[in-house]
Write a protein that binds this DNA or RNA. Structure first.
Lengths: 298, 298
DNA sequence: CTGAAAGCGCTTACAG
DNA sequence: CTGAAAGCGCTTACAG
């Protein structure tokens, strides 16, 4: 077919609104050009940026993003993923709650990329928190704090344990005391309910597993007449939506969520295509200094 | 085939991990059992509940949810939807920014359900705001307010105009003055930047197009020494994540987001199946009284 | 280079 | 009721 007739055909096809039937193509090629992303809780604003990053790069690469939520249930997580697996070219598991064996079982069927959780033998994207956490601890040290508390999240959360460990090392290195208080629900109420424990711990500064807990803690503290940052310094994680609007604006450690979403998709597509892993950006967290931390009271 | 051999075959199939190939089935049936949902901004926490509602009912009905984001761009919105249309059985358009003609063009290809925007001839899900808004206005009236301001959102937002109109009627009915101040960006900065206009308007209470703007306004007011609710009452819309944690906790009007997501999916599936429209729940908004409103200053 | 044929894995209408 | 055949709309390997 010469170029001219090809053009004519394409023009007419466009005019008639012809589109390739993606199912017919998928049937033949075995590739659906779809990617599944599984998060535990879409209501958690942290995932919004991650999904946004994943969606935008997917679109650019000509893939469509299928979305599923586990509602923090392991059964629901496997059930949804198993249901999706036949329809997609690969799956992104964000902070999966299921055990390693279940994840590996999925990875035997289709390429899997894991975000925010370590697991051997699979591509994993975890934010590099050490430098930002070091900065946070340094900041508290400079303010005179010597006794810290870490308000941990749910016991099943890999990220909570990870943050606790990094924090522990950073504090001890600088000769500061640090206690872990928890586990707690990763909600505002989780933070609220911890206010008593925090006060009796004697810590002058507390780092919460996430901003939501930090906000809950601050609200509960205020109700008891202890005002942040004068009586207590508080740092969160994630820089969630609204962290800069609350009073006091929240000092926090922000993860590279959007970049992680993009990196996960890029890696997954490379795996699907059998290409080598793409260059990976550093994915470093960032210390965001705002108004919820202050000098220790004399 | 008798029941026994059928069972044997099913058992073996299960053992071998056989799954129906959804692409082959879709090719034959013309039904992909996928639904696309298009939102303008996934970072807007309002959509989280809506997507959650849509996802959970989709999963129950055996459909999978494809997610796309327009980033508030009309071009991106049509491009993404056009790309998705051949792959899905129907699409849900949440607060679409494109014009009616573009929406109708999509609806000619696949069933479409529209959320948070009126358009003739298509199934539409809009929250019923009147009673909740009446309650809000009544509440302000009881507090002695007689001069209100409505901080509107973007001019392209159908919901912003709608809320403005309902508010206007409710206020006038009670003999209260109300001015519309806007348009504003539907962000915290949009609220912040409006603080001056609000003050010079002389209004003693302001209703913002959404909670985010309300929070921005409250923060900016505080910076200028005017404290909510003593010097100014503020009401938002949406009851976003964090609205109950900020100080003062935000009085707001909450839409039935999750129910709307579910209703939209149910209606879409009914249309796809050629079934009659399902029973529709009322989808009423709710007035949520918290701490950002108070008696007018003497 | 061009064009006809086979085949991806299902569903469905039809013959036996 | 059972089973073989056709066909969904593509891609790809192959014959001409």
């Amino acid at each position: 077919m010469n170029a001219q007739t090809e053009k004519r055909i394409r023009d007419i096809a466009a005019e008639l609104g012809y589109r390739i039937n993606p199912m017919a193509r998928a049937l033949q090629t075995g590739r659906t050009r779809m990617i599944a992303i599984m998060v535990s809780d879409i209501t958690n604003p942290v995932y919004a940026d991650l999904i946004r990053g994943a969606e935008s790069i997917s679109t650019v690469e000509g893939y469509t993003l299928v979305f599923a939520e586990s509602h923090d249930s392991r059964e629901q997580e496997v059930r949804s993923v198993e249901r999706l697996v036949p329809a997609v070219d690969g799956v992104i598991l964000v902070a999966p709650r299921v055990d390693d064996a279940a994840i590996r079982a999925i990875a035997e069927q289709k390429p899997v990329v894991v975000v925010n959780r370590a697991i051997d033998g699979l591509p994993v994207f975890i934010s590099h928190d050490e430098p930002a956490i070091a900065l946070a601890v340094e900041h508290l040290h400079g303010l005179g704090h010597r006794s810290l508390a870490y308000l941990s999240g749910p016991s099943a959360s890999w990220a909570s344990a990870h943050r606790g460990e990094v924090l522990d090392r950073a504090a001890k290195q600088r000769g500061m005391d640090i206690v872990e208080l928890g586990p707690n629900s990763a909600t505002a109420d989780g933070g609220r309910d911890a206010v008593e424990t925090v006060r009796t711990s004697g810590a002058t500064a507390v780092i919460a597993y996430n901003d939501i807990m930090a906000m809950g803690l601050i609200a509960a503290a205020r109700d008891r007449g202890v005002v942040v940052p004068y009586d207590l310094s508080v740092i969160g994680f994630d820089d969630v939506f609204g962290a800069d609007i609350v009073n006091p604006a929240l000092t926090t450690v922000r993860g590279p969520l959007s970049a992680m979403g993009r990196a996960a998709v890029e890696r997954l597509i490379a795996d699907v295509d059998g290409a080598g892993p793409p260059d990976e950006a550093p994915l470093a967290s960032e210390f965001v200094l705002r108004a919820s931390t202050g000098p220790v009271r004399a």
